[in-house]
Design a protein around this nucleic acid. Structure first.
Lengths: 125, 125
DNA sequence: AATGATTTGCGAATCGTTCGCAAATTGGAA
DNA sequence: TTCCAATTTGCGAACGATTCGCAAATCATT
């Protein structure tokens, strides 16, 4: 099932094609790309899944990731290993949001993705 | 000229088509879409202009904005009026970056865009 | 089993972007 | 100025991820 696949993999984003492969991995009847497109659209609409865009390829590609309580915290994406980190330090989270509000900007955690380099990748020379 | 058009308009992002129109507004010889695509690619490569993606349309659309000292500060985009805000409070800026580093994440100001609601738009009911 | 509603898969359409190539423009060197 | 090579341009075709249309398959309710 589509949603359960994403639920079990929240450490990175998946393209439609990857989701299709991942779901069909489980054996049984294969699902088509079209169906994945349609079903994922519904999941996004209902707020179960979030959609971002990947830059860099010839044309833009949408990527998807499951929402847990993700509207409650910020996310970071490592530009080297593409891993998604969920901000789990509540003190920092509230501090960041407060600092932004002081600058008259009410940050939207659901749409924002912080890009940078994660801990393990910054160790690499 | 393409770069000077973007230099004069740093309060929002422009699509290729908007850039084309904006440049051709200045009279003289019109430049084609192809040329805009090519020239903007070079500007991005050389670090004079930054490229982001706009979500929501049928297919992905790239958008461009001029870099001033933009590698030095964060940017915010209002999801309501699409205006781009440049973080000008240095104290907050360094505080944010430090807070992220405490969470083992070295934020990349050039690739990150904070989404949310700006001051004037949050006043609207 | 029968009926209607939903979902599926396939192929065509969409459309921003990129590519290929010949024509136009530019920039030196003589 | 004139010649020639190098770069840039504009046009149309190609690309490719996504969406659309529609008939066939599946599901749900009785």
């Amino acid at each position: 099932m589509l949603l359960s696949f994403l639920k079990e993999n929240t450490d990175r984003q998946f393209s439609i094609e990857e989701i299709c492969e991942g779901v069909n991995q489980g054996g049984g009847h294969d699902i088509s790309l079209s169906a994945v497109y349609r079903n994922i659209a519904k999941l996004v609409e209902d707020g179960h899944v979030r959609r971002f865009m990947r830059d860099g390829s010839r044309t833009a590609v949408y990527q998807y990731i499951h929402c847990r309580n993700c509207e409650k915290h910020l996310h970071m994406k490592c530009v080297k290993c593409s891993k998604i980190l969920h901000m789990d330090d509540e003190a920092t989270e509230t501090m960041l949001v407060a600092a932004m509000k002081k600058n008259n900007f009410k940050i939207d955690e659901r749409k924002t993705m912080l890009y940078g380099v994660c801990d393990s990748c910054s160790e690499d020379i």
